[in-house]
Amino acid sequence: MSLRGNDRHKIFKIQDFIFEKILFLFVLLFIFILVGLFLVLFKESATTFKEIGVLKFIFGTDWDPDEEIFGALPHIYGTLVTTTIAILLATPLGFGIAIFLSELCPKKLKSVIGTLVEILAAIPSIIYGIWGLYVLVPLMSKYVEPTLHKIFENIPILNELFNGQMFGTDYFTAGVVLTFMITPFIASVTRDALEIVPPVLKESAYGLGATQTEVIVKVMFPFARLAILGSVILALGRALGETMAVTFVVGNFPNLTVHLFDPGTTITSTIANEFGEADSDLEYSALIALAFILLVVDFFVLWVAKGVFLKKARKYNI
């Protein structure tokens, strides 16, 4: 039995309608989760904001649960410092790997190295943490940090940055572990972006006598910059929220210092360290307030990254 065209058309219409609504439900679900997250975090942290005061909590430099003193600034500072180190180190590294993979790498090695980089991106963070503590921390305290300290000893500002106790568990090591975690993200997305640059563009540039460096820097990167910026923003998001790996190597000590070789803490590692043993209701609430602040910082950073940089990039697109 065959259906008349009219009926078929009707069925397709209903199908489309249901399909569309289901997809819309999916989206709605995630909007609800996000809004719910915000509301719950805000509700649970209300005690802190009421009892301590919003500004006093955010700009408080002291954190002592025994005395019920809670200040978020050292934690926010630590999160921003480790993330900054990671982005500063990972961006050039990731770009370098991507360029090598898409332009310079012999064909045979290409897929092998590409897969290896992707595997690095999939390694659970606890493994980076354990590796960081057992392998990286001793190396940092014994060789890397003393060397850096010596190199920058006589340069103002930098000699303060590359200074501190040098026990290996500090802001710098945490930044380096984060670098290893986010570089694969930047590298693999950037590589994919560079690979879809139309050959015609590259060939025309070569035809005009451009060198390989010029082609990469002046033709391929501008063409792929949207995706590349996207990869950096994604990496930024991951670095801001990373918990386990950082907790293992950051030293876990609320510390407002410019010395990168001193122990510090981040929002996430403080929550991980203290949530299970939070005794008073105020402490519990203060930890949730930290989470709330992280969410706000996260939003703010992503908003700036997307709103400012992506817009600029889009404006000058070809």
Partner: peptide
């Protein structure tokens, strides 16, 4: 030096 957990302290 502060390390996480008994295992972390033992490792350091």
């Amino acid at each position: 030096v502060a390390a996480k957990g008994n295992a972390g302290v033992a490792a350091v």
